[in-house]
């Protein structure tokens, strides 16, 4: 469980400090990609969680419709 927290911490830091640099929210999904990453790491563990998150980010572009997609 501790190891999961280590993976989640940088995502939380991103949400607080890096994400505002983008000026506007940009995610085509709800929950957002970063929140999805946090949720799926908690739900599926680090390995599967990270893979799912990467897949999700790759989908998050104008050629995919986006939408409601919880972890």
């Amino acid at each position: 469980m501790e190891l999961r927290k280590i993976f989640i911490l940088p995502i939380k830091l991103y949400q607080k400090w890096i994400s505002p640099l983008k000026i506007m929210p940009c995610c085509r999904f709800y929950p957002t990609c970063s929140q999805y990453a946090v949720d799926s790491i908690i739900k599926y563990g680090i390995f599967l969680g990270v893979i799912k998150s990467v897949k999700r980010i790759l989908k998050c572009n104008p050629f995919h419709p986006g939408g409601y997609d919880p972890a």
Partner: peptide
């Protein structure tokens, strides 16, 4: 989000 999905429309440009 459901509405966007139905209408194949999305105002966000995405994270990628």
């Amino acid at each position: 989000m459901k509405f966007y999905q139905e209408h194949k429309y999305n105002p966000m440009s995405g994270c990628l």
